[in-house]
Design a binder for these strands. Structure first.
Lengths: 340, 340
DNA sequence: CGAAATATGATGTACGTTCGTCAAAACAGC
DNA sequence: GCTGTTTTGACGAACGTACATCATATTTCG
């Protein structure tokens, strides 16, 4: 009582194996009448192609290249680890994944890495995009050579890439504001915002979403201009400390980038720390949640993103559709009590 | 440049294909020296067994049985749908899933359904457990016959089942309290709690966790005794309305069970509605979040639970290890802004 | 009607693994 | 060194699909 095979389909449709194969893979012209008979048989038998056998016979070999920012950014390191991990698992499906790390925030490096890619030897590329004309151009050229490109975490204009794997950062910013706004209560004042760099689309979008909600729903709270800490802890600490010193009415802190060790260091020097929301769940932020130094963490799950990116690339290389829902990455909220 | 195959391993190890096979599948006795040579070769070549080919050759056919409570419970219906959905996807891997719904909370029905299972024709069972001696016994007997058993949503003592797929409800309750406590601000008063039935283990646990956090971190907030609404909307509306009329200092509402349409109906009649937290994301709760009638939803993702249960069963049937992390189900928090 | 064009069938090999059978080799004990 | 046991090798058939080649059947059109 196993599943139906193409043999069964052929038998039921009253045609040969070859014809079923032709219909199934759109190989040569098949007369409409014959095609219908085959398709009817497939429906009647509830035929599903055995993907395992198909890939085995195809002897497909995929090589995907992941371009990730290097440096200390914990999230990116987790993402790198997850991609490697998942690569192992997908190895069974003859998928080979190479991860290359590049200097962070370095558009030139990204651009030249993209240009060095030989379109013939790579079946797909995933990158954390830095949106500059040079990078756009390199991506365009890759795609022109038939290499699918997926953006990870930080996006490019949608016409440039096949797919984006990551969260909607405007909504992430909105979520942060909804949380922080409620956590702050009725007290009026300023919110200090620490960002990485405005060159990154995702950081700009988070700030935008944050302000949207703040001005609409919590007009007594005003976000200060984002501090550009370049994902560096020391810079973040310095800038935030300065700001905290300058303003005596800061009632909340939102850090939308990395370098959070600096943010917490600055908070630690305060007598009473205001409600604080950060991004990304690391061993540090987990500890800060548990110790009550911060109140909430917003994250995108690196494991999901890795999986989603690889699956998307595989699906695209197979010319198949893929479940959007399953591959969607959500905006997760963590408090002390729902840590994974 | 493809991946190494058993042929490569055999060549490098200087043994025959058969011997590699014997080592790989622990078939017959292989002398330790030979086994080592083979294992060294596998390591050297970074050999990974082609699971697709293996399953193809094995002609494995898995049949998993899911026993879920029937009835109106939206969450269970979503879970049922997801299991079916995922079953389709796994069909490619020759996994066949049958879902059987039983009268909800009916230990007798569950027990007899379990006893009717023919261990020979089923490779694994997942069930939403009702913990009674009869059910325990039926589960024990199934496992004794070599059928892996996974509990779903509601657990059994851990020595009885192979694995539990679901959330920790104490922590779910704690999460609710952490959110609601912060949302309520400094105002002192009571929190109204609506439950399904205190006889249900998971509801009791949520209430427990809720109170833990409330008394520890928000002592100015006091949870009223849980209203037993029996997951019925009308009952919930009546009980909650009564309570709201009796107490003029209710500053927050926590509904930890089903029947939330009634809860919201009661809130709707108030002039100013207090912060409200519910469980499970449905089309309704989603609407209430967007319209601002409620403030947060806590959920366990039915899609993840379905996937996780199936994956766990597949992995166990293959005698393979599985990624605990990947299969873990988290306690998710949704606000208006991070809805999926 | 017959030739050319088109559609279909028949057949075989391959993918990487499993599993069975049988023969050959290596080893043990005496 | 012979026998008996254990270990290994050689081979082949399957699993369900892909793909190529060649032969034959069917249609189309002048």
């Amino acid at each position: 009582m196993g599943r139906a095979t193409i043999h069964d389909v052929a038998r039921v449709a009253g045609v040969s194996l070859s014809t079923v194969d032709r219909v199934l893979n759109g190989r040569e012209t098949v007369r409409p009448g014959t095609r219908d008979r085959v398709e009817d048989a497939m429906r009647a038998l509830n035929y599903v192609r055995n993907a395992a056998a198909a890939n085995l016979a195809r002897k497909r070999d995929f090589r995907f290249l992941f371009l990730l920012p290097g440096g200390q950014n914990t999230f990116m390191r987790m993402l790198e680890a997850e991609v490697g991990d998942y690569g192992q698992q997908f190895a069974a499906d003859s998928v080979d994944i190479e991860v290359r790390t590049l200097p962070p925030f370095d558009a030139e490096a990204l651009q030249s890495a993209l240009k060095q890619i030989d379109p013939g030897s790579v079946s797909g590329v995933a990158l954390v995009a830095v949106d500059t004309p040079g990078v756009r151009d390199a991506v365009r050229s890759l795609r022109a050579h038939g290499v699918p490109v997926v953006t990870l975490v930080s996006d490019l204009p949608s016409e440039l890439r096949e797919h984006f794997v990551g969260i909607n950062n405007i909504w992430a910013g909105r979520t942060a504001a909804s949380l922080l706004g409620r956590f702050c209560g009725r007290a009026a004042g300023h919110i200090a915002v620490v960002a990485g760099s405005t060159v990154l689309q995702d950081h700009a979008e988070r700030y935008l979403g944050f302000q949207q909600v703040l001005s609409a729903d919590f007009p007594h709270l005003v976000a200060l201009p984002a501090l550009e800490a370049l994902d560096d802890a020391e810079t973040a600490e310095r800038l935030l400390s300065e700001t905290l010193a300058q303003h005596d009415d800061i009632v909340g802190i939102y850090s939308l980038g990395a370098g959070n060790r600096g943010v917490v260091a600055a908070i630690d020097r305060l007598e009473r720390s205001p409600p604080t929301v950060l991004h990304e769940l690391t061993e540090y932020s987990r500890g800060w949640l548990l110790s009550g130094k911060i109140d909430a963490v917003i994250r995108q799950d690196p494991a999901r993103e890795a999986r989603s990116a690889i699956r998307t690339l595989v699906a695209m290389s197979n010319g198949k559709s893929f479940h959007r829902d399953e591959n969607r990455v959500g905006i997760e909220i963590f408090l002390r009590d729902n840590l994974p």
